[in-house]
Amino acid sequence: MIKYGLYLIAVLVLISCQSNAEFTAADCRELGFIKTQLMCSNCEKLDDFGLETLKPHCKQCCTQDQQPAAQRTYAKAILEVCTCKFRAYPQIQAFIQSGRPAKFPNLQIKYVRGLDPIVKLLDASGKVQETLSITKWNTDTVEEFFETHLAKEGKEGKSSYSVVEDADDDDEDYLRTNRI
């Protein structure tokens, strides 16, 4: 009888431990969830559809949400582009040549020979956090992106964005140096 009681207690402890642990991917699949694609914020929405009973299982199968991209801000951005590519990317040329960059004091425009337009997003220490290709973006999208993702600086109205030319010390003609 004592042996049976100990066995029953061991089974109950094992069941309670498993109920507090996260489910495996196979367990979640059996419950109808795809563990790698289920974000925990989606479990909160189950109440809206009268599916509260699924919420505990959903919480054990979900992946914690990262901070949404719309909330991430960066201390500084560098827009790098080659002026020779302006014909291919007139929307980027329009952004650069308009007064729009002046709205962003922590934006630097850097001309790099032969480079398609990219944006480098930096933290406060100047370390690159993300690099994005903006070849398919229109002028309004570029401006909206900087409004959303660049940290606002304390001095409003200050237009101190900078433009950096390609750093070539030699005066040689670029096309002449590429001749055979």
Score class of each variant (00 low, 15 high):
Phe49Asp: 10
Cys62Val: 00
Ala10Tyr: 02
Thr141Pro: 00
Glu80Cys: 06
Leu150Asn: 04
Thr36Val: 10
Asn42Ser: 15
Cys61Lys: 03
His149Glu: 10
Lys45Val: 08
Arg29Met: 09
Phe23Ala: 10
Arg87Asn: 13
Tyr7Arg: 14
Phe146Asn: 00
Gln18Lys: 10
Glu130Cys: 07
Asp27Pro: 01
Leu115His: 12
Leu31Thr: 02
Ser41His: 03
Cys43Lys: 00
Pro105Asp: 04
Val164Tyr: 08
Tyr174Met: 14
Ser162His: 15
Leu107Met: 02
His149Ala: 05
Gln37Glu: 15
Val164Ala: 05
Thr131Asp: 10
Ala88Lys: 06
Gln108Asp: 08
Arg72Asp: 01
Ser16Val: 08
Lys76Met: 02
Gln71Thr: 10
Asp116Met: 12
Met39His: 12
Lys110Met: 01
Glu30Gly: 11
Ala26Trp: 08
Ala94Phe: 06
Asp48Glu: 01
Gln129Tyr: 11
Cys58Ile: 03
Pro68Val: 03
Pro68Tyr: 05
Asp27Glu: 09
Leu132Thr: 02
Tyr174Trp: 13
Lys136Ser: 14
Ile78Lys: 03
Ser19Gly: 04
Gln97Phe: 15
Glu52His: 09
Arg29Pro: 00
Val81Ile: 05
Cys43His: 02
Ala69Ile: 13
Thr139Leu: 03
Thr73Trp: 04
Phe145Asp: 06
Leu132Gly: 07
Lys155Arg: 08
Tyr4Gln: 09
Phe145Met: 09
Phe95Trp: 03
Leu150Cys: 06
Phe23Ser: 10
Ala102Glu: 04
Val13Phe: 06
Leu132Arg: 12
Glu52Val: 11
Lys155Glu: 15
Glu143Leu: 03
Cys28Phe: 08
Ala151Met: 15
Val11Met: 12
Val164Arg: 11
Thr63Ala: 10
Ala25Lys: 04
Thr141Gln: 15
Ala77Met: 01
Leu31Trp: 01
Ala75Gln: 01
Ile109Thr: 00
Ala21Thr: 11
Tyr7Asp: 15
Arg113Phe: 09
Leu14Asn: 08
Ala151Trp: 07
Phe33Tyr: 04
Ala124Ser: 11
Glu153Ile: 12
Leu175Pro: 05
Phe104Asn: 01
